[in-house]
């Protein structure tokens, strides 16, 4: 109990420090005191409020969404390698987003939420497609089967996106930049666009924290424990897709966040989803804020896509988990 309490304290402290660093470091140094100092330099205030702050908040929301979705997918599928990126869910969300941009879809009812909504639908369809196909291949849904299916679906959807980009011509550049994964130059409208999705999606997952714990022992045992497996599954898949859709809609595909964060959190605090979900949420936010900071400062003034940094950390972690799982199971 004390250990998890400490976990929350540490996660919050790291998040605050990340936000502070994210806000103050850059081509122009901005003191954190600008936040509350009304007498501060107006340029600094502008940089802080109009450029840095929305960027940090957006990175935080995206990171949190991907991490908590990853944690939930891993629990639901009992697969430590599952995350929105490896499962191909992110690609599905991308297709949803690109389709919206490509056809210029706008619905009056959804308003600014059109893009994340279509992203979310894309994510949900991709998720269901991956699960259905993987189940056809092997009923036990082995770890490798699921990841392979994710790769197949990802590649296929990637080619669909390439085709659409080829057909757009002039808008090409914008979409490619977005695809690489970035939270730069988005501003507050994007934050406004996604926060309800992040909130509702996370809440749906949090509601199923104990159900996820039970489902780690398999659906059969979860049923015996009184879990309404079907209902929980729908809620978790919807919540996960919502979060992935929201993240992808504003920042493109950023890989491995949903893999690295829950894995690290689990290593330290165990697999109890009551704490794993909120802790992953907090740590995911911190990680992406830091990654974004590194992406825009490491070879300044050029900015790296944030996906490069996450993949740089994520791929080795992915290999390590895969190695460990195979070793312990093969023994």
């Amino acid at each position: 109990m004390r250990k998890t309490f400490l976990g929350y304290i540490i996660a919050i402290v790291i998040l605050i420090v990340s936000i502070w660093l994210g806000v103050s470091i850059g081509s122009v140094k901005v003191s954190i005191s600008t936040l509350w100092n009304t007498a501060a330099d107006p340029t600094a205030t502008n940089i802080l409020w109009k450029i840095r702050m929305p960027r940090v908040v957006l990175a935080g929301l995206v990171g949190a969404s991907l991490a908590i979705a990853g944690a939930a997918f891993q629990g639901l599928l009992k697969n430590p390698l599952a995350d929105p990126y490896t499962l191909g869910v992110s690609s599905g969300a991308s297709v949803g987003a690109v389709v919206t941009l490509f056809f210029g879809i706008s619905t009056p009812i959804l308003g600014i939420y059109t893009l994340p909504t279509f992203s979310m639908i894309g994510a949900l369809l991709a998720m269901m497609g991956v699960m259905a196909f993987a189940r056809l291949v092997d009923r036990t849904l082995k770890m490798e089967t699921l990841i392979l299916t994710g790769i197949i679906v990802s590649s296929f959807l990637g080619s669909v996106i390439s085709l659409m980009i080829a057909l757009t011509g002039e808008e090409l550049r914008q979409i490619i930049g977005w695809l690489m994964g970035s939270v730069s130059m988005r501003g507050w409208p994007y934050v406004k666009m996604v926060w309800p999705f992040v909130l509702i999606g996370s809440f749906l997952l949090w509601l199923n924290r104990r159900e996820l714990n039970a489902m780690l022992f398999g659906e059969e045992r979860a049923k015996y424990l009184g879990v309404d497996v079907k209902k929980s599954k729908i809620m978790i898949l919807t919540g996960g897709s919502m979060l992935t859709g929201a993240a992808v809609a504003v920042s493109g595909t950023i890989g491995f966040v949903g893999l690295v964060v829950p894995h690290m959190t689990r290593l330290v605090f165990g697999a109890d989803h009551r704490h794993l979900l909120p802790l992953s949420f907090l740590n995911g936010a911190s990680l992406l804020i830091i990654c974004d900071l590194v992406a825009r400062t490491i070879i300044a003034p050029t900015e790296l896509p944030i996906g490069v940094i996450t993949a740089f950390i994520g791929a080795p972690v992915f290999s390590y988990i895969f190695f460990r799982q195979r070793r312990t199971k093969g023994a």
Binding site: L216, R266, G270, A271, D272
Partner: peptide, 9 residues
């Protein structure tokens, strides 16, 4: 199982 809880959990 891929993940494990403690006995108490």
């Amino acid at each position: 199982h891929a993940f494990s809880h403690t006995v108490r959990e």
